[in-house]
Design a protein around this nucleic acid. Structure first.
Lengths: 137, 137
DNA sequence: ATCTATATCAGGAACAGTTCCTGTTATTAT
DNA sequence: ATAATAACAGGAACTGTTCCTGATATAGAT
């Protein structure tokens, strides 16, 4: 069990209060208001530690930096090809795809990692063409 | 349409003949047998180009380097938590999860990216404990 | 076949994101 | 209070990837 630290507690609280899945850099920039001398290494070390403890979740989207989610309840994520934002989805109960994947497979399927992508509500409404489209594929 | 190059053709052929989804580094090491002076930059540039042309697929597993697949037909991948190998799965027709994900969502779900994980056939049989387990989660 | 224009190349520097190392500080147990 | 040690700040180092430069290979026109 790790020793208490004010920095780690502040990182945990910061993530718990945000719903936009910030990057390590964003966490760092915001925490410097409270801890002007905090280092990026500390942020990374504690994000890794909190992930290992299961208190936050790490999202590796495959494009750009990893993001972190203070909500550890099981849920899926949506990545917008227009603006790159990452949103939570209310869909649940996709575990049956593990069964489907395990048919005709000699190993053991223990889980899956799924990101949905498309156009977020904001990019769907504002039909402006995007200069620099973001894509995860 | 890009100009022909022997290096790119060799990369395409190499990937078409392999089913283990090699990394850029693996492609580079193998191609140096035929092209002793080929550079890693050339390998990366052509892997990116072939991916954009839709002739290969890029797999970003979130742990370690990206991998590349010469098989562009739609299929899913399995990542072993034991040895880190990446295998093709025969499962098909999971597109219904896009519909599920789109319910109660104001944006447009255009697709999904899914990796299954667990124990591969080899790691399931050989129950030796693994020294350095590999995990995508 | 030769020439010209240009895409691709090899080599290496630069880059982004992340991890690791060192000496110092904060936390916990005694 | 003191001692032991986990966590810290700062920065160097690392990994995977992209970009830049001058040289070479390819394709199209002659």
């Amino acid at each position: 069990m790790p020793k208490y630290s004010r920095q780690r507690e502040a990182i945990r609280e910061f993530l718990a209060a945000r719903y936009d899945h910030p990057t390590a850099e964003t966490v760092y920039r915001n925490l410097r208001e409270e801890f002007p001398n905090i280092s990026l290494g500390t942020v990374y070390r504690n994000l890794t530690l909190l992930t290992e403890l299961g208190e936050i979740r790490k999202l590796s989207t495959g494009a750009g930096p990893d993001r972190f989610d203070g909500n550890t309840s099981p849920h899926y994520h949506f990545i917008c090809n227009g603006c790159g934002c990452v949103l939570d989805l209310g869909v649940g109960g996709l575990d049956h795809i593990n069964i489907l994947a395990g048919q005709n497979f000699e190993g053991v399927v223990e889980g899956h990692l799924t990101y949905f992508y498309g156009k977020c509500p904001s990019c769907t409404k504002n039909k402006k063409p995007i200069d620099k489209p973001f894509s995860v594929v």
